[in-house]
Simulated assay, not measured.
Amino acid sequence: MTEATSYTIEEVAGLLKVSKLTVYDLIKKGLIPAYRVGRQMRVDEEGLKQYKANMRMSKEPSAVKAADPPRRPEPEKRQSVIISGQDVSMDLLSKQLEQKIQASPLRKYSGSLNSLIEMYRGACDIVSLHLYDGETGEYNIPYVKRILSGEPFALFHVVLRQAGLYVKKGNPLNIQGFQDLSRKDVRIVNREKGSGARVLLDEQLRSFGITPSEVAGYHDIVTDHLSAASQVSGGKADAGIGSQHAAHMAGTDFIPVISEQYDVVVLKQNRELVQSVQDILYSGEFKSQLSQLSGYDTKMTGRLIYET
């Protein structure tokens, strides 16, 4: 038996000659069937062919007689819910949402700021955030209020976790904080634009009066916490920026700098979804799963932080 051909979101966007955001919107509306394999969403060739056929039929003049009205399509039994964020807590939330409501959660692994912008454009239903604002010293609220201006939303707390620097075992260079990243003997590995770790780094450098050009490795980019920690443990960098959990997994030492707030924002258009997310976050089962992870504090999990 030959294996069915499947495509990534990027490949579907190329085949249809549209943007990735348009593809995610079509999946969200149930017009293109999709599923997740590991950290990646896939679309089968047959599903894409059926979508194209449906679009062609919708543009052709109807040849059906008036006495034979067209049959209405069967209503969708499950809605797609797109959840964006890189933390494992969003994988746990996705699994519990699938069990709790008639929905098919689809996971995206974009950074916090990029995910929030995609939510504003209508491409995400749930977005996780850890965005530090150097002006106020707050997490998340300043960014959500600015970017989702005019949109009704609820912001719920997920976990408190330590953010800081990955360093080699034993910290041979005696790196103590962000102020040491401009030293000539220190090279970092950075995160992509739009990630919470990148925002934290940029805000901290600004507070110390350090420009990116003074930091060796500033333009060496990886796209998740574990990759950053692994670059340090493998000797390719002296320091990286991220959360404590990845340090434990990659086998690096960790220098905590700030207790960061990891939250989720949900748009209020879907009241059932908002309530379901809050119920799951408050549940003992969800908190128990989170508490088994290194460096996760669940004392405020499920609390409503802000709403419009």
Rank of each mutant, 00 (worst) to 15 (best):
L226S: 06
I221M: 09
Q179R: 14
E203R: 14
E192Y: 10
N174L: 11
G217W: 00
E192I: 13
G196Q: 13
S227F: 07
L200Q: 11
S182Q: 14
H225L: 03
H219E: 15
L181H: 08
I221Q: 03
A229Q: 04
T223L: 12
F208Y: 15
F178Y: 15
Q179T: 10
G209C: 08
L201H: 07
P212E: 09
T211Y: 01
D224P: 03
G196A: 11
E214Y: 01
L173R: 08
L205H: 06
D185L: 11
P212L: 09
Q176G: 12
A228D: 07
D220G: 04
R187M: 09
G194V: 10
A197L: 00
I210H: 09
G170F: 08
S230L: 14
V189E: 00
I210G: 01
L200A: 09
P172L: 06
V189C: 08
L201W: 06
Y218N: 03
D202W: 05
V215H: 00
N190G: 07
R198S: 06
V186S: 04
D220Y: 07
V189F: 03
A216K: 11
A216Y: 04
L173I: 03
L200K: 06
S195R: 02
A197P: 01
L181G: 01
I210W: 09
L205M: 12
A216W: 00
R191P: 03
D185A: 10
G177P: 12
N190E: 04
T211N: 11
D185N: 14
R206N: 13
V199Q: 15
D202G: 09
H225Y: 01
N190Y: 00
N174R: 13
S182H: 13
N171V: 02
V215A: 04
